[in-house]
Amino acid sequence: MSKAVGLEKAKVVIREDECKGCNLCIEACPEDVLFEQKYLNRMGYHPAGYVGEGCSGCGYCFYQCPEPGAITVYKKGYVGEEVA
């Protein structure tokens, strides 16, 4: 785990191995920065991916995602360890 100090931009991190490809996060994202990966993960789902830019840190995806650990959202200004 790396130490992040005062993130300047919000970001979303997806643990692809925990994603079941339901696409609810993609549907919910107001910024339209999530997408379905072309490849399959270990469970045989197309995991969600983040385009790498444009996350507002709203958390909509986090609260739509049924998997406890699949999505982590860092809001702008987050100080602390990266948990995922």
């Binding site: 079941k20 049924p66 406890p68």
Partner: peptide, 22 residues
């Protein structure tokens, strides 16, 4: 089986409610 994901199906509401409760 996999001990880092739930047994719930994709898109199931249980997982979300679990998260809100936790």
């Amino acid at each position: 089986g996999a001990q880092d994901v739930t047994h719930y199906c994709p898109g199931c509401g249980h997982g979300v409610l679990h998260k809100l409760i936790a």
